[in-house]
């Protein structure tokens, strides 16, 4: 019974989020543009440093791990292919999604949850302001834009990390490495990565908002819901990643 109710609540949230994001703006109800921009700054701009550092390290790690195998075959130059393709197709989007789940997914749950506990959500409803429109839609718009943007950043810096390691420790020629990367990468590698990133953004927002609205009691439950929002969004991100990877493997 509890699972059925959870599913009902989740589908209600998804339904109204979709309505207030994609349908009501065309009925002249408007979108809170300024709030969306402020969410973009919080979720996107402010996570540039952490995304950059982690992507750089992942690029370096990936190049080293690839070199460990490839040098036995004297095929060190293929480090460029491996780093380029795995970062753009997989690691860029997933690393970004995990960082954003931890930073923003949890923040969404905590913000909405504490507002729910302090009757602020009820106050919004009673003023005739839809809480989903007011709280969730700006966050959703922010993540739908910022997740792909951060992923592009993560792709570039990850490849840069691999490049820096290869031209120093592996003593590959910079130009050769560069050309090898360009030749290895296809548009579809980058595009599928960005599509994943967009979907992860939707998943993270919805999970955070769902957990936030589920808060019934006080501060303790806000903490509990925040934790489960991170766990659930990382889990769902990986489930969706699996789904998309299978889809793209067979259909692109």
């Amino acid at each position: 019974m509890a699972i059925l109710k959870d599913m009902h609540d989740a589908s209600k949230l998804i339904n109204s989020t979709f309505y207030w994001t994609a349908i009501s703006p065309f009925k002249g109800k408007g979108i809170r543009i300024r709030a969306s921009i402020s969410e973009m700054v919080k979720a996107g701009y402010n996570s540039i440093p952490i995304v950059s550092v982690i992507s750089l390290f992942v690029g370096v790690i990936l190049a080293l791990q690839a070199a460990y195998q490839l040098k036995r075959f004297g095929a060190l130059i293929y480090v460029a292919n491996l780093v380029g393709v795995s970062i753009t197709r997989e690691l860029g989007p997933i690393m970004t999604a995990i960082i954003v789940s931890g930073r923003s997914g949890s923040a969404f749950a905590a913000e909405i949850g504490s507002m729910k506990a302090a009757e602020e959500v009820d106050a919004l409803t009673s003023m005739g302001i839809n809480p989903v429109k007011f709280l969730v839609v700006p966050k959703l718009i922010a993540l739908m834009i910022m997740m792909p943007a951060l992923t592009v950043l993560s792709d570039c810096i990850g490849i840069l990390g691999g490049f820096l390691l290869s031209v120093t420790a592996l003593e590959l020629h910079p130009y050769n490495y560069f050309r090898q990367t360009i030749e290895a990468l296809l548009i579809k590698d980058i595009a599928t990565g960005l599509m994943k990133a967009w979907a992860f953004g939707v998943v993270i927002t919805l999970v955070g908002a769902y957990q936030g609205f589920k808060v019934e009691g006080g501060a303790e439950e806000v903490g509990r819901r925040t934790t489960s929002s991170v766990v659930a969004s990382i889990f769902l991100v990986i489930v969706f990643d699996l789904f998309f990877t299978i889809l793209f493997y067979y259909f692109t």
Binding site: A118, D122, A123
Partner: peptide
Amino acid sequence: EEKLDEIRKKIGISFQGAALLN
């Protein structure tokens, strides 16, 4: 819900904990 929002414009509520947006 949409009709209800019209009614809600004509009512005001002062909550126990004020429920201001912090």
